[in-house]
Simulated scan of single mutants.
Amino acid sequence: MRELNLRLCRMKVTFGSLVIVAGICGILSFAFLATSLGTDYWYIIKMNPVNTSDFEDMSSRSGLWTIHEGGKMHTGSIDSFKADYSRYSETEVHMLNMHSAIVVVLPLSLVLLLFGGICGLVSSLARSPVLLTSTACYFFICSLLTLSGVSLYIIYSYQALAETERLVGPEGLAHVHTSFGWSLGMAWLSYGLELLTGALLLIAAKMLKRQHSSPAMA
C-alpha cells in the first residue's frame, strides 16, 4: 500500500506535463495534416535525363486536387466529383471513386482533429477520467480516418500506375521514375502523432482514476 501511495504521488506530479505533451502532439498532428493537404508533393513523376530532349516538360508533381506539369498547374485535371463517368472504363470509374473517398476522408479527419483539440483541452482542465478516455478514443478514430485516407491514396497511386502501364506498355514507362513525396510523409507523421496523443490521454485518464480511488484503498 505504501508503494502504491508513492506511485500515486509521482503520478500527480507528472499529470500536468503529460497532458501538455499530449496537447503539443495534437497540435502538431493537426499542423502536419493541414500542411499535407495544402501542398502538392504527394506523388512525383520524373523523366530520365536520357530523354530530356523530348520529354523535359513531362515531369510532374501532384496533390489531392491539383497537378503541376511542365511548370503549369492543372486544377481540374483530377476533380473526381465533376468527372463524366460515362466516358471512363470500369477500372477508371473505380479509381475515380477511390479518389473521391480520399478527398473526403482526409479533410474530415482534419476537421475532427480540430474538435478533438477542444475536447482535449476541456477534459484536461476538468480533470475528468471519463472525458479524457472519451477524447483518447476520439483521437484513435481520427487516426483511423487518416490511416484509411493515406492507405487509399497509396493503393490509388499504384493502380493508376498499373493502368498507365497497361495503356502505354512497359516501354513507355522505361524512362519514368515515380515516387511518393514529402506531403504523404507529413500525413503519415500526423497519423503517428494522433495515435500518440490518444495514448497519452488514455494514460492520463488512468492516472486520475488511480488518484480518485486511492483514498478508498487507503
Score class of each variant (00 low, 15 high):
M1L: 15
R2G: 12
E3F: 09
N5V: 14
L6D: 12
M11N: 01
M11W: 03
T14P: 00
F15K: 00
G16P: 00
V19R: 00
I20N: 12
V21A: 08
V21T: 07
C25I: 05
C25N: 04
I27D: 03
S29L: 03
S29E: 01
F30L: 05
A31F: 11
A34R: 03
A34H: 10
A34T: 10
A34K: 04
T35A: 12
G38E: 14
T39P: 00
D40G: 03
D40Y: 02
D40Q: 06
W42Y: 11
Y43D: 03
Y43H: 05
I44H: 04
I45V: 12
M47N: 01
N48R: 01
P49Y: 00
P49S: 05
V50T: 14
N51G: 15
T52D: 14
T52N: 11
D54W: 13
F55G: 01
E56W: 07
D57Q: 10
D57V: 05
S62Y: 01
G63W: 00
G63Q: 01
W65C: 08
H68T: 11
H68L: 14
T75E: 15
G76H: 15
I78Y: 01
S80I: 00
K82E: 10
A83P: 02
D84Y: 14
S86P: 03
R87G: 13
Y88I: 14
S89D: 03
E90G: 06
E90V: 10
T91Q: 08
V93T: 12
V93E: 08
H94G: 06
S100V: 11
V105A: 12
L106S: 09
P107L: 14
S109M: 06
V111L: 13
L113Y: 06
L114I: 12
F115H: 08
F115G: 09
G116E: 08
S124R: 05
A126E: 15
A126H: 10
A126P: 13
R127A: 13
R127G: 11
P129Q: 08
V130F: 15
L131A: 10
L131S: 09
L132D: 01
S134D: 11
T135V: 07
A136R: 01
C137L: 15
Y138R: 06
I141M: 10
I141A: 08
L147K: 14
L152F: 13
I155W: 13
A160L: 07
A160E: 02
A162R: 09
E163W: 00
E163N: 08
E165N: 01
E165Y: 00
L167Q: 13
L167S: 14
V168L: 11
V168R: 06
P170F: 01
P170G: 03
G172C: 02
G172D: 05
V176D: 00
G181K: 00
G181F: 02
W182M: 09
W182S: 14
L184A: 12
G185R: 04
M186P: 02
M186L: 14
S190V: 02
Y191E: 10
E194Y: 04
L196C: 11
G198M: 05
L200N: 02
L200Y: 06
I203M: 08
I203G: 06
K206D: 10
R210L: 14
R210I: 05
H212D: 11
H212A: 12
H212W: 11
S213G: 07
A216H: 13
